[in-house]
Computed example of a mutant assay.
Amino acid sequence: MEKILEEILCVLQELKNSNGKMKEKLTYTLDECAAISGIGKNTLLEETYKEDTTFPYFKVGRKIQVNRSKFERWLEDMAENHTELRGEKLKCVR
């Protein structure tokens, strides 16, 4: 997981350096989080529906948004604590 995080950071730095004017978004969608982290969208969605989740999301209407800096910290925390995702079955009520 730590190697994945390092690769993600390298790709982001390359993108930022390649055009110099990359505007940093304050929030991500779950699709963007999945693309950046390599974690599947369904796994991230499960994290949003966990009862005592630490996943840094909020909703705007029905749309799920994720705070960029808190998401990066969440990834670091997951790697440092060797946390296993998908440890529980999804218990969501829609």
Rank of each mutant, 00 (worst) to 15 (best):
E32M: 08
L44A: 04
T27P: 01
K23R: 15
F71H: 01
R73F: 03
S69A: 12
M78D: 02
N42K: 13
V11M: 08
E47C: 12
E32R: 03
D52I: 08
L85I: 15
F58H: 09
N67Q: 07
I39T: 00
R68T: 14
N42G: 02
N42V: 09
D31E: 13
T43H: 00
Y28I: 02
F71I: 01
L75I: 14
S37A: 06
G40A: 10
H82D: 15
Q65F: 04
S18W: 04
G20P: 00
Q13C: 02
E7D: 10
K25T: 08
K63D: 08
E14W: 05
E14H: 04
T27L: 07
N81A: 11
H82A: 11
V93L: 14
R62K: 15
P56K: 00
C92P: 04
M78I: 15
K89T: 12
E84C: 10
A34C: 07
K89E: 13
E46L: 01
C10T: 11
E24R: 12
A79V: 15
F71G: 00
K70I: 03
V60K: 13
E2Y: 00
E84K: 15
G61M: 05
I64H: 03
I8V: 15
K41W: 09
N42P: 01
T29W: 00
L90F: 09
S37G: 10
E32Y: 07
N19V: 09
Y49A: 10
K16Y: 04
T43F: 02
G38E: 03
L12P: 00
K23N: 13
I4F: 09
E80T: 12
E51T: 13
L9P: 00
M1W: 01
L15Q: 12
F55K: 01
K89A: 13
E72C: 05
K50F: 05
E7Q: 10
Q65H: 11
M78Q: 08
K25V: 07
L44Y: 05
S37H: 04
E80R: 14
L30Q: 01
V66H: 03
M22V: 15
R86I: 03
G40M: 05
K41N: 09
D31H: 04
C10M: 09
K23P: 01
V93Q: 15
N19I: 06
T43Q: 04
A79R: 05
Y28D: 07
K16L: 04
T27M: 06
N17Y: 08
N42Q: 12
L12S: 08
I39H: 00
N42S: 14
K16H: 07
